[in-house]
Design a protein around this nucleic acid. Sequence first.
RNA 1: GGAGGCUUCGCCUAGUCCGGUCUAUGGCGCCGCACUGCUAAUGCGGUUUGGGUUUUGGCCCAUCCCGGGUUCAAAUCCCGGAGCCUCCGCCA
Length: 428
Amino acid sequence: MIDLRLLRDDPDLVRASQRARGDDESAVDRLLAADTERRAAVHRADDLRAAQKAASQSVKKATPEERPAVLERAKALAAEVKVAEEEARVADEALRAAHMSIANVVAPEVPPGGEDDSVTLRTVGEVPTYDFPVRDHLEIGTALGAIDMERGAKVSGSRFYFLTGPGALLEFALAQLAITRAVAAGFTPVVAPALVRPEAMAATGFLTEHDEEVYRVERDDLYLVGTSEVPIAAMHGDEVLDLSAGPKRYAGWSACFRREAGSYGKDTKGIIRVHWFDKVELFSFCAPEDAAAEHLRLLQFEEEFLQALELPYRVVDIAAGDLGTSASRKYDLEAWFPTQGTYRELTSTSDCTTFQARRLGIRSRDADGKPQTVATLNGTACAIARTIACLLEFHQRADGSVHVPVALRPWLGGHAVLTPGMSLAPSA
RNA sequence: GGAGGCUUCGCCUAGUCCGGUCUAUGGCGCCGCACUGCUAAUGCGGUUUGGGUUUUGGCCCAUCCCGGGUUCAAAUCCCGGAGCCUCCGCCA
């Protein structure tokens, strides 16, 4: 939800944001009107309630003779209050609906336009030429005994997989590397629940924006999260955080579940797009004025992580029309997939400013000790399945073996290369 | 799964049986002032949050876990829900 004060003070800023996103500008005027109407309705109800309260107090003080008349007036007022309250409730609901229909105000630096208007800020690392026919990650992973897609389908259906042998070790190695680096960078490690109540899902916006993407456990009225952003954001819901020592930073590990409705035919092969994967997610709560700097910090972490994996990548400044509802700015980090001959999103980071925290009721104290809504930011440290896919493809060699980035070796028995049929026991 | 207890303005707590003076008690903490060589102690005052309004002094409304209901009037009575704790059962 956007800041209504900002809307009242500078509606043109919000209109410009809507324009940049390709969203409906008139929604701004509908919200302004709903805001005015709600305030009028609340004012009427409050005044009536004050009168009714006074009347109610006078019932007790009334003499027996006056009592019937006083009671009569109080009753009449009570009925009026009931009507006015209902009107206020309706106005409030209308405001809420209008409020929800407007996405976060985009940062002024964001490129306007749609998907094709996103801007590559920089490209880091060399894209090598492979002097042999490159194989995709599924071929390599299957040959290594790292990925078993067929049995994944047998047990759970399409877009499910088993990670076995070196694949399973890679999962833990990536998780360890991500968490270790995050802790070193000041993030508090968190193991978060992957099953949450409807409130947590709704408060983070996933029931409205990504409703089709979400798995429900109807029997228990719980939802499987698509990212640990959900439990971590909701973790501090309705709290006043102490940010006097700086942002609160978390690195959350959890399983992630996505129905991938509407992505039939997209990335059907391998583990690039799957119904379940594990992920280490970065999440920061900070003062609104620190959000832009914090965003760059998350971006830097993500870049350094890809560098540690020895992967070339590019940083894309996502255009307004392609931003999520809560994001005011978003960077995608895309790494090179040789079989696709292109960069594909491996991680991303979004600055949600106060948009998400307003709905979640997460505040901190400003310099004057007044509560203010915090800013929230999220970023991928490592989406494990897709990262494994990229590593296998990018670091493949002509003989079907795969180079292991130095940073991962401590968790892979010290091995520098993964070879089909190799022993996974630590090398001497 | 069964039985019971509990949830009050940062923390602790009184109030709930028996509806109105609860405009919520007291303590701790915190802020200000006074006193005081300094500190401590003491005294006095202030200290939930959100909304509305404002001549920026204030004023009004809501807020006692959440949502309904009864009533002129609900922290208090009734119904539904959530969370925490204890015990029993089951369980990796």
